[in-house]
Design a protein around this nucleic acid. Structure first.
Lengths: 194, 194
DNA sequence: CTAGTTCTTGACAGGCGTGTCCACAACGAC
DNA sequence: GTCGTTGTGGACACGCCTGTCAAGAACTAG
């Protein structure tokens, strides 16, 4: 063994993640990253490989954390529909700054489209998991009579995911938290059984 | 008068627009643009100023055209709800390639967020117009009894806009046209009076 | 046909960004 | 304390990208 790193690898990665998240991949320079991470150029390359690998690692980490947070929130909710409501409300919550970041995964989709296989592979599992969780939630909601028995869970889940994505893009573009909140309530109310 | 330009200004701009649209601002080089436009470097700078101005001009043109197309489609529809349906279906239509482009305005929001005032100003009117058109559509739908009288048009319109944005991002990320189509139908069916 | 203006083409300057090299410093093991 | 190993900081090479320059070609007006 020899000299240990003077910074925490994961902590620095999270700092870099925020820069990528806000600015996107192409607009971010390695200088931006090293500065934000509080480390030197060489340490950056030694630790993360290069800009792209660092981005991919940050993106994977983001996706994992983000999904984890959402799944946790679902578990804590008292009922399936309430879980859904919290999930939608979350897109309207947080500080102005936090909302202006949007979602790193969505920003990545917009920046790269489906052209980049590695990035697609980093995002697909998370997207799948979220959507499947919502399907599951809707099944339970149906069993409890919280939504109409005729509801197609797959379709509904896909639509909800899209609405949430759109809310996040809207948040990044500056849509007001009141409006976002109203959208969240409206979307869930629409699902509620009548 | 002297030597006229050997290319059509608007046509070349549209070619450049497609490059920006697909790759985003930061990832596009002036060489990419000139090549795609079929013009020389100097002609590019003479005609459009610089990269950023060209982007702004393309974005404004995109927004205007896109809004125009959607408004036209609304006018042609036989009923308000049908107009809405067509609008949502449109996000699922087109070739694989076309869908993989997503929407340039949404890509711009994701790339720049609300930080860039000029870009925000280029997008805001179009976003407003679309959303207001949907509000109007919903009012008419309500008058005709196509949707429930209790519907809040503002909230509903905002939610629909978000869903549509999310569909477009999904399309860019590779979501299947069948799934997109199903989301479109589901969203409009949810609105229909019961 | 001539003159004046504008477009076009290729080259180029300057700056920025990425990734590497190297010398030195710091640390752990013995 | 010494040695071997590993992190750090500064400098640097190289390429790419943006925006400009200059010279020549093309066109219109008169």
């Amino acid at each position: 063994m020899a000299r240990p790193k003077q910074f925490d690898r994961d902590e620095a990665l999270r700092a870099g993640m925020r820069v990528f998240w806000q600015q996107g991949f192409a607009a971010t320079t390695t200088d931006d990253l090293a500065k934000a991470m509080g480390i030197g150029r060489q340490s950056f390359y030694d630790t993360y490989g290069d800009k792209r690998r660092c981005y991919l690692e940050a993106l994977r980490d983001y996706a994992r954390t983000d999904v984890g947070t959402q799944i946790d929130a679902i578990r804590r909710a008292p009922s399936p529909l309430q879980a859904l409501r919290e999930m939608m409300r979350a897109a309207a919550a947080g500080s102005q700054e936090r909302r202006s970041f949007g979602c790193m995964a969505i920003n990545a989709m917009a920046e790269f489209g489906a052209t980049d296989a590695e990035i697609g592979a980093a995002l697909a599992p998370a997207a799948m998991l979220i959507e499947q969780s919502i399907v599951q939630l809707l099944r339970e909601a149906k069993a409890k009579g919280e939504v109409a028995p005729s509801l197609d869970e797959q379709q509904a889940a896909a639509a909800i995911v899209c609405t949430r994505m759109g809310m996040t893009v809207g948040a990044r573009a500056g849509r007001s938290p009141e409006s976002l909140r109203a959208i969240a309530e409206f979307t869930v109310d629409q699902l509620a059984a009548r």
